[in-house]
Amino acid sequence: MPIANHHSSVPVIVDEDKCIADKGCTVCIDVCPLDVLWINEETGKAHMKYDECWYCMPCEADCPTDAVTVNIPYLLR
């Protein structure tokens, strides 16, 4: 069966100017209990790759440069 890609608006936003993932930081990626934050290979910065968020906040709370914001997923807003 063929598979389609569908778009979805994700709750976690990373401010690329503040994010230092390209300098080796992986704090938000490490602490995510659902493993949905990954390095964006184009920018070297962290981003939310999968829309599977518990909006639990360790990524935001533990980010050393305050680059991460956790929003409420659109379906719940």
């Binding site: 490490d30 602490v31 995510c32 209990p33 493993d35 639990c56 360790p58 533990d62």
Partner: peptide, 12 residues
């Protein structure tokens, strides 16, 4: 399965 630092029901 995740990372012990922030896993489980009491991650926060």
């Amino acid at each position: 399965k995740a990372n012990v630092k922030r896993s489980g029901a009491i991650s926060m």
